[in-house]
Each structure stands twice: as structure tokens, then as C-alpha cells.
């Protein structure tokens, strides 16, 4: 069960995993996520599904190695299995013909925006994708995004590729310089990026959907850990989301809530790495 069929290092501690998950692969729709546990004493962590293959019965996820759990995951090799994998969770992204849709992926949020861009294009939308990273080498899935979109624009912080700057610089230029009529924006990436995108589109009242990633445990509408403020109301990202109207989301609250266990996460990671290095030394 939940065997890793493929694994690829994409640099900067980001790994792509193909995982055998027949039931999930059959059902997964753009915007949905899974929850996994690496081992029987591990945490449950939510991760957006980047793609699913009904024929191979696999799903693809991209995970950045940040703490203990993602480090343990990165140590698993092809042929090994996860302890638990459940999904597809959350409400799928609303896919229909809007007209011109801008899909924005920041960092490894690109993995999450990819299936949405693909579905939006298949639905007959004109899809302009904007992908961003710190530098050219870190830009993810550019080729895939090209096939999934009508146009792909890139932004890198160091200017090594595409526009020098961030994804909102590109979006601003589309809205204000090129004066392209945009019917919908979907933005997935770091919270700060989704906030900046939402602030920008609010000026022109362009409907903007963001995908939120709060701390989660069960992911099925029981524990309430993933509560977020949307339009000043409590919503649960696992069953009401993860997609929400970016103009109504309280991003500062989300950022604060994401920080709550930083100290514990660091201690856990340090202990793990210490033990790990002692073992490997």
C-alpha cells in the first residue's frame, strides 16, 4: 500500500514523488490534497496533489524538505511505502469557462497550480500562467506549465530568467500595462504571495481564488485545527476549502497560526538530525 513508484530530486530540497494510490488517483480533481504519514509515530501532513494518473493508478506530489517529517519522507526510496495516505480531500477547484484565467504558482506552489491550469485550458479558457522562483534553476515544471497553458510568464528574484522580480510584478504588468481583461485569477504559493496577489487584484475587482495551507490533523472536518478567517467568519480549510476568495481571506491570521509550532518543529528537526547524523557517522 502507498508505495513510492518514482522519486526525483528537483533541487533546493524539493522532491517529486509518484505514489501508488489507485482509489485516490481515480478520484483526484484539481485543487484537492492528500494527508500522509511517513511512519506510525509520525504527524499527519497535508500536501496538494500535483497530478494523478488514472492508468498508472498513481498520484504525484512535490514536497520541500523543511522539518523532521519531510526529511523522513525524503529518506524513503522507490519501492518503499508510506505508513498512511488518505484523499483526495477538500473541495475541488471550480473549473469552468470563465474567459481569460491567470494561474499563478509561486515556488513549489507551481506543483499545485499545474493541474488547475491544465483543467482550465481544457475547459476552453485562455490560460496565462505566471510562475515564480528565486532563480532560474529553481523554477519548477516550466515545460509542463507550457503545455497546460496558452502562455507562461516567469519571474525570478535575481533576474536570471523572465522578469526580474516577483509574480505580482508580472501580474501588475498584465493588468496595467498590457491591459488584458482577466476574468479570474488562481494563486497558489507562499501565504505572503497569495496575499500580495489578492491585494493587487482587489483594486480591479478581479475574482481571485487562493488555496490555503493551514495546520491540519484529521483533514476530514472533525478537529477544527485548520480554521481560517474568511470574510470574518470561521471556515475549515479541509471541508470548506482549501480554495477561498482571496479578497476575503485574513492572510495575517493564517501566517500567525502557521507559526504556532515553529519552536517545536525546530527542536524535533534538530533532535532528528542529530540522531540521524550520529547513526550515519
Amino acid at each position: 500500500m502507498y508505495q513510492i513508484i518514482g522519486k526525483k530530486n528537483l533541487g533546493e530540497g524539493i522532491n517529486l514523488y509518484n505514489i501508488s494510490a489507485p482509489d485516490i488517483a481515480l478520484k483526484a480533481l484539481p485543487g484537492q490534497f492528500i494527508i500522509l504519514r511517513v511512519n506510525k509515530k509520525g504527524e499527519r501532513i497535508p500536501i496538494t496533489i500535483a497530478s494523478s494518473d488514472k492508468n498508472d493508478k498513481t498520484i504525484t506530489i512535490l514536497v520541500q524538505t523543511l522539518g523532521k517529517t519531510t526529511h523522513l519522507l525524503s529518506e524513503l526510496n522507490v519501492g518503499e511505502s508510506l505508513a498512511d495516505l488518505v484523499g483526495p480531500l477538500g473541495v475541488p477547484t471550480e473549473i469552468k469557462k470563465f474567459g481569460t484565467v491567470v494561474c499563478i504558482g509561486g515556488g513549489f506552489g507551481t506543483a499545485a497550480i499545474y493541474p488547475i491550469a491544465k483543467a482550465m485550458k481544457a475547459e476552453g479558457n485562455h490560460v496565462i500562467s505566471i510562475i515564480g522562483a528565486r532563480s532560474k534553476e529553481l523554477l519548477l515544471m516550466e515545460d509542463e506549465m507550457k503545455t497546460a497553458s496558452n502562455e507562461v510568464l516567469a519571474a525570478t528574484n535575481d533576474g536570471s530568467y523572465g522578469t526580474k522580480g516577483i509574480v505580482t510584478d508580472v501580474l501588475r504588468s498584465i493588468i496595467y500595462d498590457k491591459k488584458i481583461q482577466i476574468d479570474r485569477v488562481i494563486a497558489i504559493g507562499p501565504v505572503i504571495m497569495m496575499k500580495a496577489v489578492s491585494d493587487l487584484t482587489k483594486e480591479k475587482s478581479i475574482k481571485t481564488i487562493v488555496s490555503l495551507n493551514p495546520i491540519m490533523i484529521d483533514g476530514t472536518g472533525m478537529c477544527g485545527a485548520c480554521r481560517v478567517l474568511v470574510g470574518n467568519k470561521t471556515k475549515f480549510a479541509c471541508v470548506d476549502g482549501p480554495d477561498f476568495d482571496g479578497h476575503l481571506v485574513d492572510f495575517d491570521n493564517l501566517m500567525n497560526r502557521l507559526k504556532f509550532y515553529k519552536e517545536e518543529e525546530k527542536t524535533s528537526y534538530d533532535c532528528h538530525m542529530k540522531a540521524h547524523h550520529n547513526l550515519t557517522a
Binding site: I217, C223, A225, L229, D250, R257, F260
Partner: peptide, 14 residues
């Protein structure tokens, strides 16, 4: 109520 350190009983117990 959205402050850190405020749990639902379900989250705390889970």
C-alpha cells in the same frame, strides 16, 4: 478566538 493557543476540544484531544 483565532489566536494561537486556543484549541477546539476535538483538536486538543486528537
Amino acid at each position: 478566538e483565532e489566536l494561537n493557543g486556543i484549541y477546539s476540544a476535538n483538536e486538543f484531544l486528537t
